[in-house]
Nucleic acid binder design. Sequence first.
DNA 1: GCAAACTCGTTTGTATACGAATGATACGCC
DNA 2: GGCGTATCATTCGTATACAAACGAGTTTGC
Lengths: 154, 154
Amino acid sequence: MNVADKLPPVHDDLEAGGEYRLHEQVGFVLRKANQRHLSIFAAHVGDLTPPQFAALARLHEVGETSQNQLGQLIAMDAATIKGVIDRLKKRGLVTLKPHTLDRRRLVVGLSEEGRVLVERLLPVAMRITAETLKPLNAREAEIFLKLLGKIADG
Amino acid sequence: MNVADKLPPVHDDLEAGGEYRLHEQVGFVLRKANQRHLSIFAAHVGDLTPPQFAALARLHEVGETSQNQLGQLIAMDAATIKGVIDRLKKRGLVTLKPHTLDRRRLVVGLSEEGRVLVERLLPVAMRITAETLKPLNAREAEIFLKLLGKIADG
DNA sequence: GCAAACTCGTTTGTATACGAATGATACGCC
DNA sequence: GGCGTATCATTCGTATACAAACGAGTTTGC
């Protein structure tokens, strides 16, 4: 259950174009959209968070990498990716080993269980995206993803 | 500085429509968009977070309310809004007093400093939204906000 | 070669976020 | 009126997120 689901319907008063209305501020609506997606994700997956899944999915894509590099690939700073990897490690979904040449680095890889799990979840992830986009028709969804991508990349 | 800014450019390989690509999953892109907005917000405001500002802005709109009700108005669950209000209280931006009729409730209101601060920040918030939407032209921005609203509200 | 600058991972501190459990209070229904 | 249910605020536990500072290691500049 999501907090956002309980929000009262918001009435549009579209006169007075220059005024402040919280529900028209991108940040606020982005946050709510995120909340809704989170709850859809949790309903489908349950025992893995989106960041954890993102890490596993990227590892599956690129193979082994250093911890920080993986973080960059999924837009997480060093402190955040560390926690994510720690928890995945504790569950045996990833493996950690020192880099042979650069002794600062920690090489992260998928364990066998991790690989199996990711491959099972990849189709689920696509269904999650589809369900999140359900309020839009196909054409709108395509436009939305394009524009959202521009916003995300600056 | 934002982690997302350092992400390598992502190349579109648009053949194979049914395949999994992380950068096309809404959740992932929503998260990045949020990150970019966060960093824009921080650059403009600095000593207030978006949730804190949302709380103040809503209080300015609706006047006094109970803590939980305020949470519902900005899509925060009880545990989250408590922390936000606590921190605003500690800085003297909101006032807390018991409800006269319902002794369970805690009535939250803007302090004088809080009111002054919100009123100063309202125009800034609109500039933050504008800057976040800068990658889009006016028509795109309008479409984007409409579609994002649908996604957020389910 | 070597000192300065940078990178990698870690830790600490703060701020969301939410689920779940709890105590106090209010309300509904009979 | 009183009991079951619902609501309000709080607390605990877990998981992002990021800034800042740090030690250890590596690369650059000269």
